[in-house]
Write a protein that binds this DNA or RNA. Structure first.
Length: 434
RNA sequence: GUGGGUGUAGCUCAGUUGGUAGAGCGCUGGAUUGUGGCUCCAGUUGUCGAGGGUUCAAAUCCCUUCACUCACCCCA
């Protein structure tokens, strides 16, 4: 026996309940976004490596050690996208979409990061991203938060906490960063190993530490919110007013920073305590400088991304997935001789009553086991097609889960009666169910 | 990259102080039932994650390795 080929670590097959949850989530998100007038954009999975280096930040962990990077046959360095914003911004610039116009876009698909897998974190994971270009004022920041809240409501998700913060302008943030480093240098002896490393790479992230021993140091640190530039301060205050207006509760988290370099001003996260360590289910913010940084004209921009696997896990845990509708009709074939006409008749039903879903039993099985399958499928009625001694070339409509039959008729009579019989059957079934 | 836990049937797992494997679910067939739901009977599948070692004998003890999983880190 040859060695079994397995999937790549951290890249999972989704089937059954999970696949259903995935599709349900994406479809629902899409429908909400369409409701808000956002348009779909489909983007490549592979981009030039330089794009991510320039946008995400050269010294982030993502770029330094988590990207799937390889050489194309012509020697270009390419990378499987580790996130969606960079590619979206590139596409918007390249296609002139931000030229004196506003774009409200959404996309979904796989992202790739070489990380050690754990709950809610995989090497191939999926995001649903939303990006808006060309709007500077805070009402769009608010709309993004509001529409995400509506999505949670549509999905039936409760207990998601909204955390907000402002990073200020690039300049204010830089100035604050210097101030923070100065403070932390003075308290270097109290810092843990991770924080000492971050002091070099990304000092703002020290504020976000999970180490309780660091609480005192972090609490004593200067707050970014106290060092915002005036415009950002006003922008942030307005955001809170908008959120109050629509009645969306939020928590101000002064330690909420971003792993990606390009954010400024508004940042927000929807978090849950029900998923273990990976509690952020949706995160985003403003990135006004990024378009220019990647080579476009200065264009304000704001967006967010949802982690599909994490939301899926919540939906499944709470049994919130709206399942695919059961078939209306399950075709039971009594005897070998019924197989051939079975296909013909099931197609005739689909032609005649295209709104019905018809599942045909294929591959045989005993009469009894076919009924078991019919029952399991959740179908409303079983259409029994028989050519054996019992059925004698008759069609029988049987109500599943009820002690009711049945309209026997010859095959040749099927089509004229089909509509009437089914409609009556389905109607009565529906009525009895209520 | 670091640390903990776990690998036995398609799934969930049991397997006592070492004696070459079991249950439930599922699946298949049958009995009963109003040709399906409940009940009952029968059948079905394993290189016990992989490689090596100790032993008369290893799922069980030792070493190595791989995979899964949780946490750190990172992040959606």
């Amino acid at each position: 026996m040859s060695k079994q080929i397995t999937a790549i670590r951290g890249m999972n097959d989704l089937y059954g309940e999970q696949a259903e949850a995935f599709d349900y989530l994406v479809n629902t998100a899409q429908s909400v976004l369409n409701q808000y007038g956002f348009a779909s954009i489909r983007l490549p999975l592979v981009e030039k490596t330089e794009l991510f280096a320039r946008s995400i930040g050269e010294v982030t962990d993502i770029v330094e050690k988590e990207m799937y990077t390889f050489d194309d046959r012509n020697g270009d360095s390419l990378t499987l996208r580790p996130e969606g914003t960079a590619g979206c911004v590139r596409a918007v610039i390249q296609n002139g979409l931000a030229h004196n116009q506003i774009q409200k876009l959404y996309y979904t698909g796989p992202m790739f990061r070489y990380e050690r897998p754990q709950k809610g974190r995989y090497r191939q994971f999926h995001q649903f991203g939303v990006e808006v270009f060309g709007l500077d004022s805070v009402d769009i920041d608010a709309e993004l938060i509001v529409l995400s809240a509506r999505l949670w409501e549509r999905l039936g998700l409760e207990n998601l906490e909204l955390q907000i913060n402002s990073l200020g302008s690039q300049e204010a943030r830089q100035a604050y960063r210097d101030l923070l480093v100065e403070y932390l240098e003075a308290h270097k002896s109290e810092l843990d190993e991770d924080s000492l490393r971050r002091l070099e790479s990304n000092p703002l992230r020290i504020l976000d530490t999970k180490n309780p021993d660091m609480k005192a140091v972090v609490d004593g640190a200067p707050k970014l919110i106290d060092h915002l530039d005036a415009e950002s301060k006003q922008h942030y205050d307005e955001l809170k007013v908008y959120l109050d207006d629509v009645g969306i509760p939020y928590t101000e988290n002064p330690n909420l920073v971003r792993g990606l370099d390009y954010y400024n001003r508004t940042v927000f996260e929807w978090v849950t305590t029900e998923l273990g360590a990976q509690g952020t289910v949706c995160a985003g913010g403003r990135y006004d400088g990024l378009v220019e940084q990647i080579g476009g004209k200065p264009t304000p921009a704001v967006g967010f991304a949802m982690g599909i696997e994490r939301l899926m896990a919540l939906l499944i845990d709470k049994d919130l997935v709206e399942h695919n509708a059961a078939p209306d009709v399950y075709l039971v074939l009594a005897g070998e001789a019924a197989k051939r006409p079975g296909l013909v008749i099931s197609e005739q039903i689909r032609d005649y009553l295209p709104e019905l879903t018809v599942q045909m039993n294929c591959g045989g099985g005993s009469f009894k086991s076919q009924f078991k399958k019919a029952d399991k499928s959740g179908a409303r009625v079983a259409l029994v097609l028989g050519e054996d001694e019992v059925q004698q070339q008759k069609i029988a409509v049987k109500y599943l889960r009820e002690d009711r039959e049945q309209a026997l008729m010859d095959w040749s009579d099927l089509l004229p009666h089909l509509s009437e019989v089914f409609q009556r059957a389905l109607h009565e079934w529906g009525a009895s169910k209520k």
